[in-house]
C-alpha cells in the first residue's frame, strides 16, 4: 500500500458503544493503511529496543532506538544529515538519470536490432560480471575522488539490468500483437511507439526497479570509498570515530529513502501503467 493514499482512505472509526470487544477494535485498526504500513516496523523497533535494554551486546557495538533517535535529531538540527541526504540524492539522480537515458536507448537498440544484439550480447555478459565496485579503483585513477567517479559507477550499475530487462520485455511481446499491428497498417515507426514501447514497459519497470536498487547501493559504496559527503560517507566517518549510533542512523535513512522512492515514484507509475493494463499483478500489494 502506498503511503500517499493514506489520507484519502483512512476514515475515523465509527462511534463505538460499550461492549465492543478489544479484538474488534484491533481488527478495525489493522485495516487502516498507515497502520498496516507502520505496524511491521513498530514490531522490529520494539524487538530492537528490548534487545538493547537487555544488554545482550555491549553498548559500544549496539545501541537502542532511543539513542539512535537522539543522534538523528541532533544531526538534523545541526543540518549535517539534511545536507548529506541532498548530496546523496543529487548524485543518485544524476547517475540514474544518465543511466536511464543510456540504458533505455541501448535496451531498445539491442532488443530490436538483430545485428546490434548479436554484436553486444557477449560484451553485455562480460561487462555485467565486473561488478560496480570492481570499477572503483580504475575510475578513481581516471577521475579522482570526484562526482564524475561516483556518477560513472552508478551509471554503470544502472545500465546493465535495464538493458537486459528491456530486451527480455521486448522478447516477451506476443507475436500476434505484432502481427495484428502490422496487418492493421502500422508502419515500423508506428509499431515502435504503439507496440514495442508499451509492450516493453513491464520489463522496463522491473529494470528500473533493479537498476535503481543497484545504483543506490553503488552510491553508498562509492561514498564510503571516495566520498567527502553523503549518507555513505557519514556512516563510514561515524565508524571511524566509533560512533555506532550514527551508523544506525545512516542505515535507517537508507531504508526510509528507498521506501519513499518506491511509494512515491515507482509504485504510482506502475499502478497507472502495467498494473492498470493487467500486464503484471500489483507488486507486493
Amino acid at each position: 500500500m502506498s503511503v500517499q493514499t493514506t489520507a484519502k482512505t483512512s476514515r475515523p472509526d465509527p462511534p463505538r458503544r460499550t461492549g465492543t470487544s478489544a479484538a474488534a477494535r484491533w481488527r478495525a485498526l489493522r485495516r487502516r493503511p498507515l497502520v498496516t504500513t507502520l505496524f511491521p516496523f513498530a514490531v522490529v523497533i520494539a524487538v530492537w529496543a528490548v534487545v538493547a535494554e537487555l544488554g545482550v551486546f555491549p553498548s559500544a557495538f549496539f545501541v537502542g532506538p532511543a539513542t539512535v533517535a537522539d543522534s538523528l535529531l541532533t544531526s538534523v538540527q545541526r543540518g549535517i544529515l539534511p545536507a548529506y541526504i541532498v548530496d546523496s540524492l543529487t548524485r543518485l539522480a544524476v547517475g540514474t538519470g544518465v543511466g536511464l537515458l543510456v540504458g533505455v536507448a541501448l535496451g531498445f537498440l539491442i532488443g530490436l536490432n538483430r545485428h546490434a544484439r548479436r554484436f553486444s550480447w557477449p560484451l553485455l555478459l562480460f561487462f555485467q560480471a565486473i561488478g560496480d565496485i570492481a570499477w572503483l579503483p580504475i575510475v578513481i585513477i581516471w577521475f579522482g575522488f570526484s562526482l564524475t567517479s561516483v556518477t560513472v559507477v552508478i551509471v554503470y550499475t544502472v545500465v546493465f539490468p535495464l538493458i537486459i530487462s528491456i530486451v527480455a520485455g521486448l522478447d516477451a511481446i506476443p507475436t500476434n500483437l505484432l502481427r495484428a499491428a502490422s496487418s492493421l497498417g502500422a508502419s515500423r515507426w508506428r509499431m515502435f511507439w504503439e507496440v514495442y514501447v508499451p509492450g516493453a514497459l513491464p520489463g522496463l519497470s522491473s529494470g528500473v526497479r533493479t537498476g535503481l536498487g543497484y545504483g543506490w547501493r553503488a552510491l553508498i559504496a562509492a561514498e564510503i570509498i571516495i566520498g567527502t559527503s553523503g549518507v555513505g560517507f557519514m556512516m563510514f566517518d561515524a565508524r571511524r570515530q566509533g560512533d555506532v549510533s550514527h551508523v544506525f542512523v545512516g542505515m535507517a535513512v537508507l531504508g526510509v529513502l528507498w521506501y519513499m522512492t518506491d511509494a512515491l515514484v515507482l509504485a504510482p507509475l506502475e499502478k497507472e501503467t502495467v498494473e492498470r493494463w493487467g500486464l503484471v499483478e500489483g507488486i507486493g500489494r
Binding site: 506476443p174 500476434n176 500483437l177 502481427r179 495484428a180 499491428a181 496487418s183 504503439e194 507496440v195 508499451p198 509492450g199 514497459l201 501503467t273 493494463w277 493487467g278 500486464l279
Partner: peptide
C-alpha cells in the same frame, strides 16, 4: 485478421 487469442493491445 481475427486471432484465436484476440491479440488486443492490453495498454
Amino acid at each position: 485478421v481475427v486471432f484465436q487469442d484476440f491479440a488486443l493491445f492490453p495498454w
